[in-house]
């Protein structure tokens, strides 16, 4: 139980710190800053417990991890929460086309919505060009003489997803 308390507790502390930072200013490279905050707080919690903080916590009636396995379990619980939040956060950063379609149709009221109206909203400027810019921002691609080319990170990213889709026997996706 100590691993759950400290693993989830350190995630909660990192989450509150992230919310405080975001209230002041949302960073340009949000994912990078978020990861930095999350893992810095985990490292601080582990260092605190290792440096005798566990005894201090025990005096306050809080359970504390003792063995190497306890510390690993604590870190796994924390990392699983961090990764889940990161993946949910990425869905918050960019508008999901499916969710936007459904919200637009719901917003049209009882008369429903014509496909033409959806097509007017869903243009390349809204749906594709921001994601092309994201490739540059995340250093997955670079632009040379008007052409977009993948970086080494982008090629690795592409190979990972393409090989996994091949393994599952799926098509292009998107």
């Amino acid at each position: 139980m100590s691993t759950l308390v400290w693993g989830a507790g350190s995630f909660l502390a990192a989450f509150l710190l992230h919310m405080a930072v975001w209230r002041v200013r949302v960073p340009e490279r949000q994912t990078k800053v978020l990861l930095l905050i999350m893992f810095a707080v985990l490292a601080a919690a582990l260092a605190f417990l290792k440096a005798g903080g566990g005894r201090f916590a025990a005096e306050l009636g809080l359970p504390a991890p003792e063995t190497a396995g306890d510390f690993l379990h604590l870190a796994l619980i924390n990392i699983s929460l961090v990764l889940s939040y990161m993946i949910t956060y990425s869905a918050m950063e960019a508008d999901s086309p499916s969710l936007v379609i459904v919200m637009a149709v719901a917003g049209a009221g009882p008369d429903g919505m014509e496909e033409d109206a959806l097509r007017r909203y869903f243009n390349d400027d809204r749906m594709v060009k921001p994601r092309i810019r994201d490739l540059l921002l995340d250093k997955l691609a670079r632009k040379d003489g008007g052409l977009y080319r993948l970086t080494a990170k982008g090629r690795l990213f592409a190979a990972l997803f393409m090989s996994y889709r091949f393994l599952l026997g799926r098509g292009k996706g998107g």
């Binding site: 691609a141 977009y148 592409a158 997803f161 393409m162 799926r170 996706g173």
Partner: peptide, 14 residues
């Protein structure tokens, strides 16, 4: 892999 636009764009570039 199924729906993300960025993954599909990366695939087209690859």
């Amino acid at each position: 892999g199924e729906t993300a636009r960025r993954i599909r764009l990366v695939r087209e570039l690859f």
